[in-house]
Amino acid sequence: MSHLATTEAPATPAPPAAPSKATGQAKPPSDEGRVFNVFSHGFLFLWGALVTIPLLWAVIQSFKTDTEIINDPLGLPEQWLWGAFGRAWTKGHIGEFFINTIVVLIGGVTLTMLLGSMAAYVLARYPFRGNRAVYWMFIAGLTMPIYLGILPLYLTVEKVAKALGLVEVIGLNTHLGLILVYVAYSLPFTIFFLHAFFRTLPSSIAEAASVDGAGHVRLFFQVMMPMAKPGLIGIGIFNVIGQWNQFILPTVIMKDEDKRLLTQGLLELATNARYETDFARLFAGMTIAMLPILAVYLVFHRQVQAGLTGATLK
């Protein structure tokens, strides 16, 4: 925002109607401004420190020896050791968890976006009997806490897979099984958001394409999807963060040791830290888990902030 302020500064001349008042007040506001500046930077800096210090401190622990972590928690490592990262990746199973998470995330977000935008598009632009009922059925899911369904969900996943004879494919402890559950729980929000987005797209282009003989499916994939790109990116990032950090669903569905996801596996390491001797490994695992989300945030922080907060107000 600050760069905006500097470009706008010359473009806003003092209102001509009140020259006397403006000169009469010229001094107090500028003093007031300076005091506020010091004051606000002070408080803002303090909170910034409260946010960053625990984060940085924890990251630094991954470069220390265990003796340093226990005996000198505040100091910097005498030697910056990278070994803990390798140990976390292999012995701490962070590598396995990481790959499981990536597989589920790619499948989950792709399928959520595809099915979500299909449903949102039809609901937003094709009036038919029952349209509103289907829309509200999805929206109702937004208001329900996940605890309402979490216990029988486990049984449902098991039963559905058994009934279809696909226990190895979409049953408990399978990537695809978890992906389908992720998609189902991400749909209400995705549809809600994209529904609003598809409504704002102009219908003239759609009409022109349809006159040119494009079918409904082609119209959707070749005309509407490209036009909806900003909305798709916004909600896509939202789903990436949400599904990357998801924790309750995998705890219920992925019970097998080698099928665990990152959040789940790392939390397990943290809770069992009492019986653990390799503290640096735990912090290194945490650092590894933080890097992808930090990268996404560095690149897309504007979209993330606007998307998450904007979505709240819809």
Binding site: L115, G116, M118, A119, Y121, V122, L123, Y126, F128, V134, M137, F138, G141, M144, L148, G149, I150, L151, P152, L153, L155, T156, V157, V160, L180, V181, V183, A184, Y185, L187, P188, I191, G215, H216, V217, F220
Partner: peptide, 25 residues
């Protein structure tokens, strides 16, 4: 056919994994 085709999979997934467990609870 288009409307049904596009809504079928989302509604099915949502009904099976979200609404059905709610009702079961």
């Amino acid at each position: 056919r288009f409307i049904t085709g596009f809504l079928f999979a989302p509604i099915l997934l949502y009904a099976v994994y979200v609404l059905y467990p709610y009702a079961q609870t």
